[in-house]
Computed example of a mutant assay.
Amino acid sequence: NMSAGRPFRGCACFFTDNIFVGRFGLHQTPCLPEVPPNKNNWFKTMSRFLELFCSALLISDSVLCCLFQIEAEVQRRKQLIHQSVERRAIISKCYKPKHPEVYTLQDSFLAPEFLEILRFCTSPGADLQGLLSYLESFSDKRIYRLPVFTEEFCHAFVDELENFEQSDMPKGRPNTMNNYGVLLNELGMDEPFLTPLRERLLPLTALLYPELGGACLDSHKAFVVKYSLHEDLDLSSHYDNAEVTLNVSLGKEFTEGNLYFGDFNQEPSAVPKFMEVEHVRGRGLLHRGGQIHGALPIASGQRWNLIVWMRSSAIRNQLCPMCRRKPELVEAEGFGDGFTEPLQEEVPPTVDVCALG
């Protein structure tokens, strides 16, 4: 995949920062921060780090467990590209879909209200206030709900996903926070389904999130997550590696498991205010990728959600949203993490992933 003729890349921080440690439900960066120009903030960070470290020393087995988990996760991340390419090749050759029609986006999959919203957004004079009259807004967090898919499509799509889950095909999981789910690029859905869906959303995101590159979201990472009893029940607080996220409830039948949203990660408050949002099958939530959020435990049934992290290279090329630094580019497969090489004659070499400590 290319953006204006430039291949997509990742940022080297993927191998050093934001390592999720399941035992504590926290993301860790296992290295001390460099001293930035604002030394006061650095000293606050260091004080907190030392406080946590000294507390952890009281339970050394937890410290060792944490370190082993971090190292294992770093090594796993270094193998991701190679393993993903292998899985996709096997799936493409050997897997027989139950519902092959769901792999290519069709208007019949989309809710009539969604198509009406698209018509408005592409009409002359379309503006934010007009668009908001079509959407359900939540507080002041710039979270919006809208119909996306029909009930019939949701049923067929989940049935297809369950068919894949029950097959003997190799399966890559979305991330370390979700142990159950499907990476949709490995099913071959990027070009025929997800890219057209992202492109159709651009008129909406251009009006809703102009400062986040809503008009030029040129790549994505998409996956489906599954929650059920005795599997993944909930999801810890986090923010997404995305400028804008689309989260669509696909079903099936379940109780509880609401999403909750806190602060925008770049605008933290002294006392964060959280709000809950219920899932509605076929409807999607649009929110800023940097919005802190999570999912409460499911009480019964199964919950499937389609997650699309939409990215703008024009925005993230300036500052990586995960490490908050100028991205240090590394080789990647497909859309990578949405970064692109700079437009200049002398392009600096990418980083050798295997050389990263």
Rank of each mutant, 00 (worst) to 15 (best):
237 S>R: 06
238 H>V: 12
238 H>F: 12
239 Y>N: 09
239 Y>P: 08
240 D>N: 13
240 D>Y: 09
241 N>K: 13
241 N>Y: 13
241 N>V: 14
242 A>F: 10
242 A>T: 12
243 E>S: 15
243 E>M: 11
244 V>T: 12
245 T>V: 15
246 L>K: 05
246 L>V: 14
247 N>Y: 11
247 N>V: 11
248 V>N: 02
248 V>I: 14
248 V>M: 09
250 L>E: 04
251 G>C: 06
251 G>N: 04
252 K>R: 13
253 E>G: 05
254 F>W: 07
254 F>S: 04
254 F>N: 01
255 T>C: 05
256 E>W: 09
257 G>W: 00
258 N>R: 07
259 L>K: 01
259 L>C: 12
260 Y>E: 00
261 F>T: 00
261 F>C: 06
261 F>D: 02
262 G>I: 03
262 G>R: 01
263 D>F: 05
263 D>E: 13
265 N>S: 15
265 N>R: 13
265 N>A: 15
265 N>V: 14
267 E>F: 15
269 S>Y: 11
270 A>G: 09
270 A>H: 12
271 V>P: 11
272 P>I: 05
272 P>Y: 03
272 P>G: 05
273 K>T: 14
273 K>R: 14
274 F>D: 09
274 F>I: 09
275 M>T: 09
275 M>V: 09
276 E>Y: 06
277 V>F: 02
277 V>W: 04
278 E>M: 05
279 H>L: 07
280 V>M: 11
282 G>P: 01
282 G>Y: 00
282 G>C: 04
282 G>S: 10
283 R>I: 02
283 R>S: 08
283 R>V: 04
283 R>E: 10
285 L>R: 05
285 L>W: 11
286 L>T: 08
286 L>P: 06
287 H>Q: 15
287 H>N: 12
287 H>K: 13
289 G>S: 11
289 G>K: 00
289 G>H: 04
290 G>Y: 00
290 G>V: 03
291 Q>L: 14
291 Q>S: 14
291 Q>P: 07
292 I>Y: 12
292 I>V: 14
293 H>G: 07
294 G>N: 07
294 G>Y: 01
295 A>V: 07
296 L>F: 06
296 L>S: 03
297 P>E: 02
297 P>Q: 06
298 I>D: 00
298 I>L: 07
298 I>W: 00
299 A>I: 00
299 A>V: 08
299 A>Q: 06
299 A>L: 07
299 A>G: 10
300 S>T: 02
300 S>D: 07
301 G>L: 00
302 Q>H: 13
302 Q>M: 13
302 Q>T: 15
304 W>G: 02
305 N>K: 11
305 N>W: 08
306 L>M: 11
306 L>F: 10
306 L>D: 00
306 L>H: 04
306 L>G: 01
307 I>Q: 03
307 I>W: 04
307 I>E: 05
308 V>W: 03
308 V>A: 06
311 R>I: 05
311 R>C: 03
313 S>W: 01
313 S>M: 06
314 A>F: 08
314 A>Q: 12
315 I>R: 10
315 I>S: 11
315 I>W: 08
315 I>Y: 06
316 R>N: 09
317 N>H: 06
317 N>L: 05
318 Q>W: 10
318 Q>E: 14
318 Q>P: 09
319 L>W: 12
